[in-house]
């Protein structure tokens, strides 16, 4: 039985990978850009999943890593004249270092207090970047333009983003099989018990936060380079954090592929709605998210993993289980 499940998963993954690699060669620039954008959210949601899903620390400020990643690349490339290949890893490392520094005090907080503190950190960073001379303040900063044809640029960004996503998922997968992964889940289930069993909770939590920051930072760097211009209000937007959390929950938190599926399906639903309803799309979109959370709180992953039969009884069982 378990083996059959693995086969299904493997097939499913295989199909996704083939689509992922073939897509840019069979579609127009808009689709490529659209999917690149969706992949970015998949990275962000998956990165959030590490700290929010596996470790159980609901960070409401994860956008700060996107912002730092974006600004590290922007400042290094524009002011420092360094090539993208230097700015890109520097963005990930910069965001990870920030996560460690900020994690030391903030990860001592739990529950709502942690959520509020991270929200505060993101807002404070926005205010800081808004007023710094080197980031050109709230008027925003340009990045150097890439010297490639339009199509090649988009294929480049597509595969870079896809690469970051694969890296995020593979690294998460590997860590889950190691002591770190079990430690994180133990922290989520009962931090004090984990501590008494010898799990170095501070180290584990900070590692998880830093990983989350690292991948978000890489995504931020790509975002900035593709946009060609960034402003604090757009890369430190709390709405982006909310979006990554909704995506992670929609797809299924605490599972590897959940956030990816959540991000893709939410982006596609949102795009279709926007296409047909100029203003009312927000209303329909909100309704879809509410229904999804009420009927399938465990996310898409729970449905397609095939552990339970999908049908009316599944939906009703979910409501009973979660006492909505």
């Amino acid at each position: 039985m378990a083996q059959k499940g693995t086969v299904t998963k493997g097939l499913f993954l295989g199909i996704l990978i083939i689509i992922g690699i073939a897509l840019p060669f069979f579609s127009g620039n808009f689709i490529i850009r659209f999917v690149t954008n969706a992949l970015m959210f998949a990275v962000l949601a998956s990165a959030w999943n590490i700290i929010g899903g596996y470790t159980g620390y609901a960070s409401f400020g994860n956008v700060v890593f996107l912002g730092i990643g974006a600004y590290v690349s922007a400042v290094l490339m524009e002011k420092g004249g360094v090539p993208f290949w230097v700015g890109f890893p520097a963005s990930g490392v910069g965001a990870a270092i920030f996560a460690i520094l900020i994690g030391l005090p903030v990860l001592r907080l739990k529950g709502h207090y942690f959520a509020i503190a991270t929200l505060g950190v993101a807002e404070a960073m926005k205010a800081l970047v808004d007023n710094l001379e080197i980031t050109e303040g709230n008027s925003g900063i340009y990045l150097p333009v890439m010297d490639l044809s339009v199509k090649s640029q988009y294929i480049f960004f597509y595969f870079m983003m896809l690469g970051v996503l694969v890296l995020t998922l593979v690294v998460t997968y590997i860590f889950l099989k190691k002591k770190l992964g079990y430690g994180l889940i133990a922290i989520r289930e009962d931090e004090e018990a984990a501590n008494s069993l010898g799990v170095n909770t501070t180290l584990f939590k900070i590692t998880s936060f830093a990983l989350s920051g690292f991948f978000s930072g890489l995504a931020g760097s790509l975002y900035a380079y593709q946009q060609g211009f960034i402003k604090p209000e757009s890369v430190f937007d709390v709405g982006v954090t909310v979006k990554m959390i909704v995506m992670a929950v929609f797809g299924g938190i605490g599972s590897i592929l959940g956030p990816l599926l959540g991000a893709l399906s939410i982006e596609i639903i949102s795009e279709i709605l926007t296409n047909y309803f100029l203003v009312a799309h927000t209303l329909f979109f909100g309704a879809i998210v509410i229904f999804a959370i009420v009927f399938t709180p465990k996310g898409i992953m729970d449905i397609i993993s095939g552990r339970k039969k999908f049908g009316i009884s599944y939906l009703l069982q979910n409501i009973r289980d979660h006492r909505v």
Binding site: I19, L23, S27, F30, I31, F34, V35, L264, S265, I268, E271, I272, N275
Partner: peptide, 8 residues
């Protein structure tokens, strides 16, 4: 997923 992506 694929169908939706291609059919805009």
């Amino acid at each position: 997923v694929l169908g939706l992506v291609v059919s805009f």
